[in-house]
Every structure is written in structure tokens, then in C-alpha cells.
């Protein structure tokens, strides 16, 4: 099952003892802080977990796959995530080395 904000909040309330409301608000601002930092153009580096970086992509020729029409893909800024060493290792060690889903 996928981890969601609601689940994180429930854990914080149980483990740290925040009220339900505090936990919910905390989880919201946790992700909001990361978003607004990236929005302002700064990378976010969370040691052990990974880093969010920004990449500026130039315009490139594209095509509407349905109509075959040529449409330029505009220059844009995108977020990329690079998993940290610890996260990569934990995932590699605990999951099978053959595809299972």
C-alpha cells in the first residue's frame, strides 16, 4: 500500500505525540517548504534520503503523437530527484534482484 500524507500524520501523532491537527498541519508544511524552496529556484538536500534539483531544459522539437503535427516543446524548468546513498542501499538490500511487480 502506498504511503500518503494521512498515514504520515497518523504515525506522527502516535510516535511523537502531536495532536491530530498538529500532525496534519506539520505534514502539509513539510512538503510545502520543499515546494516553495524549489519554486524559488533553490535545490533541497536531505542527507540520507536524497536531493531535489532543478534543471533548465531548452526548447526542443516535438510532435503531437495523435495528429503527427510538429509542435515545439517550450523551454521549461523541471525538478529531478537523486536518491541518497543510504536510501539507495536500503532499497537495494531489502528488495529482490528480480522484478516482482
Amino acid at each position: 500500500m502506498a504511503l500518503t500524507k494521512a498515514e504520515i500524520a497518523a504515525h506522527l501523532s502516535e510516535e511523537i505525540g502531536l495532536s491530530k491537527r498538529e500532525a496534519k498541519e506539520f505534514v502539509e508544511s513539510f512538503f510545502e517548504e520543499i515546494k516553495s524552496t524549489l519554486e524559488a529556484g533553490s535545490p533541497v538536500k536531505i542527507s540520507g534520503f536524497g536531493g531535489f534539483e532543478l534543471k533548465d531544459k531548452g526548447e526542443r522539437p516535438g510532435r503531437n503523437p495523435k495528429t503527427g503535427e510538429d509542435i515545439p516543446i517550450e523551454a521549461r524548468r523541471v525538478v529531478t530527484f537523486k536518491a541518497g546513498q543510504k536510501l539507495k542501499e536500503l532499497v537495494e538490500e531489502s528488495l529482490p534482484d528480480t522484478p516482482n511487480k
Partner: peptide
Amino acid sequence: ETLMLMTNSLASGDRIEV
């Protein structure tokens, strides 16, 4: 705790959806 939950979720093969 939040980062640990996220890490454990991925390490046990589960997605995270925010």
C-alpha cells in the same frame, strides 16, 4: 520520523504518494 517512514516505505517495496 517522516523521512524514516518514507525510506522504510520504499525499502519495503511500497510507493509514496503525496
